[in-house]
Design a protein around this nucleic acid. Structure first.
Lengths: 204, 204
DNA sequence: CTCTGTGAACACATTCACAGCA
DNA sequence: TGCTGTGAATGTGTTCACAGAG
């Protein structure tokens, strides 16, 4: 395909493909057609073909896409072929739930540090990680941590974001119900569960 | 404005407006212009004006939008003017974090029941709610619960979804890393934190 | 003059239809 | 035949530019 700017929506779906392909690999399936994959993910087959074709030819005509190598290629596109470390800020209930969540590894993601500002929590363990003081942010860059998760109250989120950005963090997953002000080279994805739940009554 | 189908993206942003207006109300601000609101939410002013105009004229030219009544009208549009009850399935770490999260009330949402299949957990309390057995799903309809949150492992999610749909639940917020098969009159919103984090390395 | 409300223009994303390879 | 890869057509959502109200 000629040069095309890759749609953000395509990027957003890529981890979905990684997740599905990882499962297929576990099931021992070697190839999958866009039709089968679309059925699993409730997408349209041409959508999947176009998404993948933005990055070149992945499949074999008449057969489909090879499960293992397609997963590997998508991971490489998303820069998930190298382990990506993240710092989690906030060791409350949500924070600890995230810290022990095993689902990050499919994407090569690892929670490599936990930070909290509550002095009574510092030094205690969550899984195999020790909760650190916010001052430890200064060491993040040296430890190769460039992603951050904010699981703190809304009032604290902007301050934490500032500290992480200062510490060289380039991508933030914000779980607090607020918007963040960050330099534009820092990418923020926000998730607000209450907002997500809030749209449902409109549709039901 | 003449008849227009309202974009899904517009609906998705409406809770954002509710959240911002609730905060403004707390701050005592009586009106807000699309420009000011856009700055807070990092959107464009025309976007906000168009979103609101789909539902009629909310604002006063030269002044802006009245904070309180606009919030009330959006809540009514989203059916959040009547209290909406939800059942939470899964009383693990993520489930309990959600159960005690205070952020739902801004939207008139309430976690009104918690269900888990672990017999040792049944009867114990999370906040002021008692964890119930999955068999209690049969009582959901009578209790006016039409929304569900799934905070269970991926392997259990489809089964739980089936039970909830059977029990008359019309909207689901799925936090498990999988897709769900539901009748098309049931609306599903899925959140996968690992997937959301997984797109960040591409952008950084 | 300020700010809303909105048709029209534009940009972006999805779906179609089919050429081309296995 | 079965399935991918892709330009073209369609559909959806955003932004612009300005008319019109306060």
């Amino acid at each position: 395909m000629k040069y095309h700017k890759i749609p953000d929506e395509t990027i957003r779906r890529m981890p979905l493909y990684v997740r599905a392909l990882a499962l297929l690999e576990q099931e021992g399936q070697e190839t999958i057609s866009s039709r089968q994959l679309a059925e699993r993910l409730r997408l349209n087959p041409p959508q999947i073909r176009k998404d993948l074709s933005y990055f070149g030819a992945f499949g074999t005509r008449g057969i489909g896409y090879p499960v293992i190598s397609t997963a590997r290629r998508i991971r490489a596109i998303l820069r998930l072929d190298v382990p990506q470390k993240a710092v989690l800020v906030g060791a409350g209930r949500l924070g600890t739930a995230i810290a022990v969540y095993p689902g990050f590894s499919v994407f090569g993601l690892e929670i490599a540090a936990i930070i909290d500002n509550n002095p009574t929590k510092i030094g205690s363990r969550v899984g195999r990680l020790e909760i650190e003081h916010i001052a430890a942010a200064a060491t993040l860059k040296a430890r190769g941590i460039r992603l951050g998760l904010l699981a703190v109250p809304a009032e604290a989120a902007q301050g934490c974001a500032d500290v992480l950005v200062q510490a060289g963090v380039k991508g933030l997953l914000n779980l607090a119900p607020c918007c963040l002000d960050v330099p534009k080279q820092v990418k923020v994805v926000s998730i607000d569960m209450a907002m997500a739940l809030g749209v449902l009554p409109y549709y039901v």
